[in-house]
Design a protein around this nucleic acid. Structure first.
Length: 486
RNA sequence: GGCCACGUAGCCAAGUGGUAAGGCAAGGGUCUGCAAAACCCUCAUUCGUCGGUUCAAUUCCGACCGUGGCCUCCA
């Protein structure tokens, strides 16, 4: 069962074939670090995180590069985003960069997103960018005007091939006044001449200035992944102009394909419309994490395809959160059954165990074929839900043999935990306070048991309700009362 | 206006040329002192509308309606 990827470049699902057998080189456009990360970032990076985890789980040797944009990404009014942040907070631009880059990683860590292997910063790769621009000028793909350098879209016949746009179709100047110094309205800046007062600037062969937004990705991808690499990822909202420009620059400079597979994640909507600051429906990851567990957010994101848009709403999050609880409860029950094996009934024969093992093997295969089919996480997730239902049933029916439980536990840990990151790892109840807490709860459970034995249900319920208020849920079972902490 | 997606039960959301995964919600039942958790049962003859191709379409084609995205701010 081999891996197939939907390639935006061709508009088709294609079997994956890496530049180098057994390896995957991947670049994903990273954030511009001038403000807190939002749910759109969460969707994109959780989606690509699961792809990383699946590729690694499948045995590929993956190198994952994700840039940090800290210069050159301009706002409508031409101001650099970093400078805007610096002005807002009255600090040095690089303080803004450090602050929000750290916040970005903190948020991603909280969401369980594995860090990229390399997180190169644009401002740290100015020489590489200058070198690439030089190459483009020499090759006749770029020209210098008044200390700025522009890429000539007419020099690259395939410009528009990713986004399906034709230069002729696009009437320039619709939204933003065209700078007259460009030869063609679609030409884009590689290097921007800096006024003397501009805080971010570097010396270059064309005078002092700063790099344009697109060139950083091309230069850094080439440096760390080579001139042609396997997968380029990002959000669809960057398909034009950003991704298109990356292709134009890289392929013009190197004369060979840039990325073989383009994977673009769908946009995150809030109650049906795109999230934006101006609409006031902007939700940061920190805000969301105050209200929901990380697994619930991941569950929400993974319950749709990575390349489809996702519509965030409190209702949708609530449903995902409940689903996440169900899965985690089932996984925990399997773990507990392994620690305290349940009584087996007369149906727990070796043949029965073989049947269960076969069912579990099939689940692994179903999961793998879902993930290998362009990373169909929602379908893979449904396999885990099936496993939850089955495992619960096996335990209830007294047929859950040790072998079956071990296999089920493995699937939950490996596929639910390591790959999708929706099942929490085993809570390590080590340390003095955790042990003390468990002891205290156990004491209350015994007090309640005494109350129940003497049919003092008011007292028993009071204990249970007060524990519930503290986030400790009691569960009465055949073999006594257990508890879980939320 | 141009380009591109999408439209599946109350909600979220997979999927296939041969008759619809999963989650949430809802209803009934088992268990329980009552809960919680869990299990069992029920819940789209139907996949935006109208045509077409086909033995057969939700799945292919066309038109229309609707929603969303992009068109040099955004992951």
């Amino acid at each position: 069962m081999s891996l197939a990827i939907y390639n935006f470049l061709t508009g088709q699902k294609e079997p994956f074939k890496g530049v180098t057998e057994g390896q995957v080189s991947r670049f994903v456009c990273g954030p511009t670090v001038y403000d807190y990360s939002h749910l759109g970032h969460a969707k994109t990076y959780v989606s690509f995180d699961v792809i990383v985890r699946w590729l690694r789980y499948s045995g590929y040797n993956l190198r994952y590069v994700q840039n940090i944009t800290d210069v050159g990404h301009l706002l409508d009014d031409g101001e650099d985003r970093i400078l805007k942040g610096a002005r807002r907070e009255r600090v040095e631009p690089m303080q803004i960069v450090e602050k929000y880059m750290r916040e970005y990683f903190t948020d991603m860590d909280a969401l369980g997103v594995a860090r990229p292997d390399i997180s190169p910063r644009a401002s740290a790769h100015v020489p590489e960018q200058i070198e690439m621009i030089q190459t483009l000028i020499e090759g006749g793909h770029a020209y210098v005007v008044n200390g700025s350098v522009y890429f000539s879209v007419e020099s690259f016949s395939e410009y528009g091939k990713l986004s399906g746009r034709k230069v002729e179709d696009m009437e320039a100047g619709k939204r933003v006044a065209v700078r007259d110094e460009k030869r063609h309205p679609q030409d884009f800046a590689l290097w921007i001449n800096a006024p003397e007062a501009h805080i971010l600037q570097w010396p270059s062969p064309w005078g002092r200035g700063y790099p344009g937004w697109h060139i950083e990705c091309s230069a850094m991808a080439a440096k760390y992944l080579g001139e042609t690499f396997d997968i380029h990822g990002g959000g669809v909202d960057n398909i034009f102009p950003h991704n298109e420009c990356e292709i134009a620059q890289s392929e013009s400079a190197h004369g060979k394909p840039f990325a073989n597979y383009w994977m673009l994640g769908g946009t995150l909507l809030i109650d049906g419309v795109k999230m934006s600051k101006s609409l006031g429906n902007f939700v940061t990851i920190k805000d969301a994490l105050e209200r929901h567990r990380p697994e619930a957010l991941r569950m929400f994101i993974l319950s749709g395809l990575y390349r489809s848009p996702a519509d965030f709403s409190e209702g949708a999050l609530e449903a995902a959160s409940k689903g996440s609880d169900r899965l985690n409860t089932a996984a925990r029950r399997v773990r507990e059954a392994l620690k305290n094996p349940p009584d087996l009934g007369p149906d727990a024969t070796p043949e029965m165990t073989n049947n269960l093992i076969e069912t579990l093997d099939q689940m692994r295969m179903r999961f793998a074929s879902a993930m290998n089919d362009d990373f169909n996480a929602p379908l893979a997730l449904s396999v885990l839900f099936d496993l939850g239902t089955e495992a619960n049933r096996w335990i209830d029916k007294g047929i859950a043999s040790r072998e079956a439980l071990e296999q089920a536990d493995n699937i939950f840990r490996e596929l639910g935990g390591d790959v999708l990151g929706v099942i929490r790892a085993v809570e390590v109840a080590s340390g003095g306070s955790a042990a003390r807490e468990a002891g205290l709860v156990q004491m209350l459970i015994e007090l309640r048991a005494q109350a129940r034995a003497s049919r003092d249900f008011a007292r028993a319920d009071a204990i249970r309700n007060q524990l519930a208020a503290l986030g400790v849920t009691l569960e009465d079972g055949a073999k006594g009362t257990g508890f879980r902490v939320s």
